[in-house]
Design a protein around this nucleic acid. Structure first.
Length: 322
DNA sequence: GTATGGGTAGGTGGATCCAT
DNA sequence: ATGGATCCACCTACCCATAC
């Protein structure tokens, strides 16, 4: 308890410069007497804290004194700020602990970089509640150089040229106004605007990226959580969704539900198997999800899905026959 | 017994006010 | 401009209470 308070005391002095014992006592929720004892302990431990007596006096640290409390480098501190900057108070009831940790992380950043880091943190969103697509796919690698270039443009507020390989299309260069970065279920996404229209790009499909000198056309502030939810909703309700009737082993229900967009109906057969009506983003998504379940599930409808799975199975069987 | 924390009292010293 | 009075904040030295 006391060690924790001593750390807090040093951080307070670092952040505010000079503080009176009374003010420190209020901040730390102890008596001034205890503050004086703590100051003495710090001094004995070699922390260069000194007292300015008289009116407007107080305690301060020698200029230039740097704590090495976290051992974090700039990027590590930024990563923690991003992770802790949203929904922090609800994190397993550890809101106050998180706030204290954030104070330490912010303190680890060099003077003048804190505002930049805070701005950068607002442009990153880690694992939001809603997903663009509930498909549980393996995390795809994004080359470091590409990711770093995109990140720089997002943070600096500069336009970005990306060579993007959209599904079933040849890669093309396009210039976008980056808004923020989101990760959901191991996938990274770039939220951007192109000619004023919202666009979402999957990072793993960005083959190359180039930060431009010109400023991006985007609002100064952004609520990434909300922006992501809006796009996610649009994505779910648009497109060529398909509805599939599945009969399956209940033990693998979760796998299917996790990958589907929504469960529309559900009932049990008399033999213990489940009958589910689920929706998928598109035909490819449905085929992929059912194929993953192998013989544990059978698509009863639509017929084209049964045909597609049958063709795949036949092709695989033919391959191994010889 | 030790660590921690609260309270009190008297002292010190810098800043400010104000009369001279 | 100067010096004394006053205010404010830290310094030091006690004592006591509580938890472990």
């Amino acid at each position: 308890m006391r060690a924790d308070r001593l750390v807090s005391l040093v951080l307070l002095l670092r952040r505010h410069g000079r503080l009176s014992a009374a003010r420190l006592a209020r901040e730390l929720e102890v008596s001034t007497r205890t503050v004086l004892r703590d100051i003495e302990a710090l001094s004995a431990a070699g922390v260069p804290v000194y007292a300015e007596r008289g009116r407007h006096g107080g305690f301060a640290l020698l200029p230039g004194f740097q704590t090495e409390l976290t051992g974090l480098n700039h990027d590590e501190a930024l990563a923690l700020l991003v992770a802790g900057s949203r929904r922090g108070a609800q994190v397993f009831g550890l809101g106050s602990a998180l706030a204290s940790a954030m104070l330490k992380v912010a303190d680890a950043l060099p003077e003048g970089h804190r505002d930049i880091a805070a701005g950068a943190a607002r442009r990153l969103l880690i694992e939001p509640e809603t997903d663009l697509l509930s498909r549980r796919a393996p995390a795809e690698e994004v080359p470091d150089a590409v990711a770093a270039e995109i990140r720089r443009a997002v943070f600096a507020g500069h336009r970005l040229r990306i060579r993007y390989a959209a599904v079933d299309q040849a890669p093309k260069w396009r210039t976008v106004d980056p808004i923020g970065l989101v990760t959901a279920r191991g996938q990274g996404y770039l939220l951007a605007a192109r000619s004023g229209e919202d666009r979402t790009y999957r990072l793993s499909r960005v083959l190359a990226a180039e930060e431009l000198d010109e400023p991006a056309e985007r609002p100064d502030d952004v609520d990434l959580d909300r922006a992501w939810q809006e796009r996610s909703t649009r994505f779910r309700t648009g497109g060529d969704q398909v509805v599939v009737l599945v009969r399956m082993n209940p033990a693998r229900r979760k796998e299917l539900v996790d990958t589907a967009l929504a469960v529309l109906a559900e009932e049990s057969d008399e033999d213990g198997r489940l009958r589910l009506e689920v929706s998928f983003q598109d035909a490819r998504h449905a085929v992929w999800a059912l194929w993953q379940l192998g013989v544990s599930a059978e698509a009863l409808a639509p017929e084209w899905l049964r045909a597609s799975l049958r063709d795949r199975a036949v092709a695989i069987a033919a391959r191994y026959e010889t």
